[in-house]
């Protein structure tokens, strides 16, 4: 397991189990394309961000966004969305409605899990607009911490080899 910095915290095995249970409970909605393992979903955080791109595509939507971290400095992030188009459509988040709601320039509040490899890469568990309305369904798991404006959010660090990395 990689060591985590950015704020005082500990990965909780129990929290991971509970989050896994929640993901299973959500069934197909969160039967993610194997990628959830790539992110630290036991330590979620929230931030305001500005959408720069949103792709309503299988197997899961993706997006890029910017976040202001002070003194005019902007971080450029890439992210996967937890849900998928078919589930979103059945929840009323059809392609047009979702793309309109996430047009470039839209300010959104995101709940994120940062990639375990570090960097400005994340999985988006939940999105809200400025009116506080959820966009596209999704779920924010245990311990989401507000890190609006904190550079880098929660960034996993360390030198541990990620599962499967040694074979490549």
């Amino acid at each position: 397991m990689k060591r985590l910095t950015g704020m005082s915290r500990r990965s909780s095995g129990r929290a991971r189990v509970l989050l896994a249970a929640v993901l299973i409970a959500a069934g197909g909605a969160f039967a993610h394309h194997g990628s959830a393992i790539s992110y630290d979903t036991a330590n979620l955080w929230t931030t305001w961000a500005t959408v720069t791109q949103f792709n309503y595509l299988n197997p899961h939507p993706t997006m890029t966004f910017d976040r202001m971290v002070g003194d005019g400095e902007v971080e450029h992030w890439v992210a996967e969305i937890l849900s998928n188009p078919s589930t979103m459509a059945r929840q009323g988040w059809t392609r047009k409605r979702t793309v309109d709601a996430l047009a470039p320039g839209t300010r959104v509040k995101l709940s994120l899990g940062t990639s375990r490899a570090g960097g400005f890469s994340a999985i988006v568990m939940r999105m809200e607009n400025e009116a506080g309305e959820a966009i596209g369904g999704g779920f924010a798991g245990p311990g989401a911490t507000d890190l609006d404006g904190v550079p880098g959010g929660l960034q996993p660090t360390g030198d541990a080899v990620l599962p499967g990395e040694e074979a490549n």
Binding site: G34, S35, S38, R116, L162, P163, G164, E165
Partner: peptide, 8 residues
């Protein structure tokens, strides 16, 4: 034996 999708 799950590995990251990028390595699978």
């Amino acid at each position: 034996r799950a590995v990251l999708p990028a390595f699978g």
